[in-house]
Design a binder for these strands. Structure first.
Lengths: 188, 188
DNA sequence: TAGCACATGTAACTCGTTACATGATTTG
DNA sequence: CAAATCATGTAACGAGTTACATGTGCTA
């Protein structure tokens, strides 16, 4: 049984054949708003998937000095992916370093606390801007597919929409927090 | 330098002295919507914090068969916590199994896909209900403190507010997804 | 009298990150 | 000619989960 990382790789390969290097690239930023992995994790996992007969590779010639191994799904791999997708997901462990800091924010100097929150707010703004660019790309490149749940574009767009919504709500929450901090201690 | 887990424990001890067992209990559910740990992680970490002179313990007698070690912050521990709080947090790795499934949702049978999303929606509803109960407890027990950023209650309430907002947005996103899935493939 | 809550620890394992290792081709 | 990109792997480490280990007092 593959790990979550294994299913992430199967999910990418279900869309198009790729080399280990290309998978590693894909697993950092673009897909990275809901999963990520470094190349040192990807290569062993690919070998595992292959020994489980869920993927196969063939050597193609490419730019690098090494063999370029292009991987693609086997029918068994495709089945394993589709079965895993509809099983309920484990509840997220919910580890968030920023929230952990907020929980102890009362111990910090007020001015520094405010800085922390406004900085975080800016980061959410940057992420939001990037997601909005991606959304424009969808509208440009696949306007009809993004409304059709049977397409890979729809699935990708659905995850993007969650990212957009998440960043917007995070910004609103930061705004509320700054407001509260600016109001300061109430001595009533 | 303590790990995030270490700072989580310091954050709890800054509020009140506790035993390792009590810390372990606290690190599962109630604080658990932004951090969690099992007791097998807590005990070694406490020993580490103590050897770094950030916490101290004294043995008190309690119900169990073992020694009850009650831990509390040292002044150095309090300083370390306040310093860490205002340092910018690392961007969350953002691993979300459910989103990973959604990314490959297009490979699944439509009816099963719908089931998956509605189930997830229900889970978010349950979490929301629990958070709303907690919010009522704040209103009941600490109505004035929750508006004063210098109190521990405010900090806890701020994290709770983020949980509430997160669940509400997640439910709205699930609603959108189900709507899209019900509309089905568009053959235009 | 069986099971649960209390109470503290260790060991084995999985998952993920960072660093090590190699080396060709393209770009500034 | 130095640096980045391409391209694939291994090794060491840290964080987290699950299982192992022990033993008391209370409750159904």
């Amino acid at each position: 049984m593959p790990s979550n990382l294994g299913y992430a790789l199967l999910g990418l390969l279900a869309r198009a054949p790729r080399t280990g290097y290309q998978l590693s690239q894909a697993m950092r930023e673009p897909i990275g708003f809901f999963w990520s992995a470094s190349h040192s994790q990807v290569y062993p996992e690919l070998a595992g998937l292959e020994s489980a007969r869920l993927v196969r590779h063939r050597v193609v010639d490419g730019p690098g000095p090494r063999e370029n191994k292009q991987y693609r799904l086997t029918p068994a791999g495709r089945r394993a992916l589709a079965d895993w997708v509809v099983e309920p997901a484990a509840p997220p462990s919910g580890r968030d370093e920023f929230l952990l800091k907020i929980y102890s924010l009362w111990t910090a100097e007020p001015a520094r606390a405010r800085d922390l929150v406004t900085k975080q707010r800016e980061q959410h703004h940057e992420m939001l801007a990037r997601y909005q660019e991606m959304e424009q790309e969808f509208v440009r490149d696949a306007p009809s597919e993004m409304a059709d749940p049977s397409t890979r574009q729809f699935s990708a767009y659905a995850t993007l929409r969650r990212g957009l919504s998440f960043e917007r709500h995070a910004i609103a929450w930061c705004d509320w927090l700054v407001e509260q901090l600016d109001a300061g201690p109430r001595r009533s």
